[in-house]
Nucleic acid binder design. Structure first.
Lengths: 194, 194
DNA sequence: TTGAGCATACGCGACGTCTCGTCTAGAGAC
DNA sequence: GTCTCTAGACGAGACGTCGCGTATGCTCAA
């Protein structure tokens, strides 16, 4: 009777191999061709998997991308911000690692694709911001900077994090050259106690 | 006389009525249903126009949106920034009119759609930024603020404009509530001489 | 024996190209 | 001036292709 309410189920269990093949294929195709041009059928073929196996576990392309993000399959997860006591230097360190991704051959295209995905799927936006550590690490580092007297006491740290991320996005959407230089200048300005 | 070099062409000239019907239909459908769900066939039907007439003049959906933007058919063109001498107040005035659009029922969806369009078509990004007056008016008002001693002399005004726009986008992509409040706080912080 | 997984067929909607037939406006002959 | 002639814009819609999301077998491991 009712091998009960919760756990017990008979029959095969979800295949980790299939899940992995699907996410790996998604990441590979996404990086190769961008969000548009990314098709479920393409993923299924690339992963050697039936379409239904994808539809069974993910409701949308966006969800697939979101899971790739949290798995660190598109960009490294959880960019850290060091704490040396020097706020500007620490933030520039973080910025450097983010820009390192962005400036790879496919980096800019990758970001635009992620933005595109985020626009149609809220989950992706959150996971993108989380992946880069904007809220968790950057904002917290800024907060610590306030305690150290290196940043104005009323600085809205979380918003500043979003402003930096947002600037990266805007520069990237408008295809500016030298995103890196601009971002460094912005951060220098924002993070300098005045 | 000047039936000259290039100009010589016989036959009917481009129909202004068709152009207008197409752009109007595009704007109408875009605002009603967003960028995804916007189809060329739908536009053609809505405008009472052949598909080919669209393909003849515009290479992509994005180009269509870009032109709607420059025509002010999606959001008002060229948000102005007043000059009263009080920098913070003037910028908040500008911000207010931008947020007024953004906070209409479809405003948030509209912005996300524009971002999505910008991600796949560089033109749209530029025109969006231009429409909101970020570079032309906001940045220049900030520059004037420097002259008035209300903003640090080394403030990167253009970047600050992008930062504000970027923050709007990030807040909107992650579906934050109270975008308006957050933005006002950010602007208050950025534009306060310290 | 149940349910995950692969494979495939299906109807649908949109794509972008192409070809009709219609019309319009400038060019050249008279 | 008037009258063809012709290039090209236009509406309409057929065409083949692609990807969608669903449905249906069949196999195989728990």
């Amino acid at each position: 009777m009712n091998e009960q309410a919760s756990g017990h189920r008979t029959g095969p269990v979800r295949s980790a191999a299939a899940r992995d093949a699907i996410l790996a294929a998604t990441a590979r195709l996404f990086q190769g061709q961008g969000y548009d041009h990314l098709t479920i059928e393409g993923i299924a073929k690339e992963a050697g998997v039936g379409k239904q196996t994808i539809y069974r576990w993910w409701p949308s392309r966006g969800a697939l991308i979101a899971e790739c993000l949290t798995d660190g399959r598109l960009i490294p997860i959880d960019f850290d911000v060091p704490y040396t006591g020097d706020l500007l230097r620490d933030v520039e360190e973080w910025l450097g690692s983010v820009l390192a991704i962005l400036e790879t051959p496919h980096g800019a295209m990758l970001l635009r694709s992620l933005v595109s995905a985020a626009a149609e799927d809220a989950e992706v936006g959150d996971h993108l911001s989380a992946s880069l550590g904007v809220d968790r690490h950057l904002a917290e580092r800024l907060a610590a900077g306030i305690l150290d007297g290196q940043l104005a006491a009323d600085a809205p740290v979380e918003l500043l994090g979003h402003a930096v991320l947002g600037t990266i996005i805007v520069q990237s959407l408008t295809r500016r050259p030298d995103v890196a230089g601009a971002l460094r200048e912005l951060v220098r300005y924002l993070v300098t106690a005045r």
